[in-house]
Amino acid sequence: MTARIQLVPPRPKRGEIVEIRVLIQHNMETGYRRDLEGREIPRNCINLFICRYNGVEVFRADLSSGIAANPLLQFHTIAEASGELEFWWKDDDGKQGTERVSIAVSE
């Protein structure tokens, strides 16, 4: 599962609000569609997404079939210390994805 991550601003000052943007490649199959032969296509959505900042959970989302394919998630946190942002998610098929980016906080 390919994902792209962007921090705005890329090098925040301590105490500054950072926007975190995550774009995940996933077809978010709704479970409501049928294939050309009329068989149900089983639902396969990302159902849980978590972001941790230096080990502390800062964002969590329960996603479902109302979310478009290749979802773009944008949320905010406060830049407190340099370190690592960890992103983790799983889908209905049980597949898990994870990404890490480092964050450098200036004084």
Partner: peptide
């Protein structure tokens, strides 16, 4: 370029 989902394919 970030919110363009087509870039996922470019990256892959």
């Amino acid at each position: 370029d970030f919110s363009n989902p087509g870039m996922l394919w470019v990256e892959k």
